[in-house]
């Protein structure tokens, strides 16, 4: 069985690698994007089973992307997990993104369980 696909949008290479490591260990296929531009390219090519998005990005805002994904009929049913060091779940919700949220730094087991529950 082919592993589930996770797209990670995270500009910090170490954090991105950390997430990739945790999820690969758990049997996922991880596509890492460091910029919004790259993310958009990847998304137009194919779709994952879950998106994991950071908020502050060098060329955009994860919350905006989340909103787009939730409104686009093609992606609206794909689960999104937002991550942030500064924002809280409430900030995310008040922005209009009713999706799951995990704050940085996180417990890696906890992180993996969050992803597992969606796929």
């Amino acid at each position: 069985m082919r592993g589930k696909v996770v797209y990670v949008l995270e500009d910090d290479a170490d954090i991105s690698d950390l997430i990739a490591y945790i999820l690969c260990e758990a049997g996922y296929n991880v596509e890492q994007c460091g910029t919004v531009r790259k993310f958009n390219e990847v998304v137009t090519r194919s779709l994952p089973d879950i998106f994991i998005l950071d908020v502050l990005l060098p060329d955009g805002n994860g919350l905006e992307i989340c909103k787009q994904l939730r409104t686009d009929p093609v992606t609206r049913n794909i689960p999104v997990l937002m991550m942030s060091a500064n924002k809280t779940r409430r900030d995310i919700e008040s922005f209009g993104c009713a999706v799951d949220f995990i704050s940085k730094p996180f417990n890696i087991d906890h992180f993996r369980q969050r992803v597992d529950q969606y796929v």
């Binding site: 170490d14 950390l18 945790i22």
Partner: peptide, 14 residues
């Protein structure tokens, strides 16, 4: 500060 904290803590957990 939290960005390096996140990766450090993650790697240490691993």
């Amino acid at each position: 500060l939290k960005t390096p904290l996140t990766s450090m803590s993650g790697f240490l957990q691993i």
